[in-house]
Simulated scan of single mutants.
Amino acid sequence: MIAIIKYWRGPLFWLALLLLAVFCMGQFEFLFRQLTPDAAEVIYHRESFAQLLLNHLLVVAVAACLAIIIGVLAGVVVTRSWGRDFLPLVSQVASIGQTFPPVAVLALSVPLLGFGDLPTIFALMLYGLLPVLRNTLAGLQGVAGSTLEAARGIGMSPLQVLLQVELALASPVILAGIRTSVTITIATAAIGSTIGASTLGNPVIAGLVNGNTAYVLQGAVLIGLLAVCVDSTFERIQHGLALRYGG
């Protein structure tokens, strides 16, 4: 148990700070008062920070899962002999999704999907797709040909080679792309508050609209702590996979 806690001490530390900020933000009112001494209210009370955190995580989780599924599947397809012709097209489409501003995607998707979580998830999915796809391609293409030949030589089927050899050996690299994608998605999800999604961006947007720096800082601190907490968790998982598969 002690060894497990020691291994996960980084993520646990950031999680503790995040929970402290979520449930004890009001205890730091005197500090936020220094930022906006003229404001009638310096602690954001319109929604619960805990509820905003859960909503933020839900939006990020759905968008990230879609990006991971699409990115990994696309990477697998275009690295097969029958799908290599689609590699340039898939790479270009993913690059466009990464370079197209999320705000523009939101503006274009609102007429089709309405306000709220759906257009936010769609924009985040497009924005987080490229790191997953690129790392999936890098990981799969980095598996040595001799390893694949050895796997086929002992009678493995193509599906077994893919699941037990290629994806297994590429998993540290793929996870690095997922880590980047999810971290970016956590930070970018805040813009969903501009179109009615309930996220940790709500205090930030409210603070910008009302000129309340304390609100902005509260939202930014929570988003930052969440991103670092999730990133450190992925780092520990990635480290474990690298040790297991020699990456």
Rank of each mutant, 00 (worst) to 15 (best):
L167R: 07
E47P: 07
I205M: 12
F49Y: 10
A220P: 03
L106G: 06
A176Y: 10
V77W: 15
C229S: 11
D85M: 15
V132D: 05
V78W: 06
L106P: 01
F32C: 13
L130G: 08
L113P: 11
G155M: 00
T147G: 09
S198H: 12
A151I: 04
G240P: 04
D117A: 15
I186F: 02
T185D: 07
L222E: 01
V182N: 07
G155F: 06
M1Q: 11
F30M: 15
I96V: 13
H45W: 13
V216L: 06
I2P: 09
Q98P: 09
T233V: 12
F100H: 11
Q218W: 06
G153F: 02
G247S: 15
Q51D: 15
A187S: 06
L137E: 08
V62C: 07
A168V: 14
W8A: 11
A197D: 04
G196H: 01
V216Q: 06
I5S: 12
L87V: 12
E149Y: 10
G97M: 13
F100I: 15
A50V: 09
I186G: 00
L225S: 04
I186W: 02
S95R: 13
A123N: 01
A214E: 00
A189G: 03
V59F: 02
T199D: 00
I70K: 12
R179I: 10
L57W: 12
I186Y: 06
I178E: 00
S81M: 14
L241Y: 09
C65H: 12
R236S: 10
